[in-house]
Amino acid sequence: MGKENLQDAIVQFAPLDKLLGLGRANSLWPMTFGLACCAIEMMATGASRFDLARFGAEVFRPSPRQCDVMIVAGTISRKMAPAVQTLYDQMPEPKWVIAMGNCAISGGPFVFKGQYGIIEGADKLFPVDVYIPGCPPRPEALIEGILELEEKITGSRRWPRVEAG
């Protein structure tokens, strides 16, 4: 994760790119897209106490055409996979994906020998920028994931990192 994944444009306008990146990173518009349990923690992150608005990412949009971040919050079933793929394709560039929770990372607790119903991870469908483990992850973890994404977009971290322990 980090800077090394950034794709460089063919023609560079370095100061302008930096400025745009700064603007994008501090006003991420996620999609209102809940699949399962993690969606409730996503709601909690946006609601009182955790207040995602502090980091500029509270503008949840129901339409993919108005968003630049897709938070995959929950299990992707095989029946749902084409719809998720469509939603991703409908988002305008530049766009980022956060895989929230174990189901979106790898299928989580629903993977077993002979399973017939789920996609084992959002990255089987499209590229994922930030992975947030947990079942479900706490709201703090989602906020940290969004800060990681900001760092990936701008190349530097705006908020101090909190060490574990």
Binding site: R78, K79, G114, Q115, Y116, G117
Partner: peptide
Amino acid sequence: LLPEDADFHPLRKDYTS
């Protein structure tokens, strides 16, 4: 509950995916 084109019956004891 299964996809529209499903032709399998997963809770049969002899089901293998």
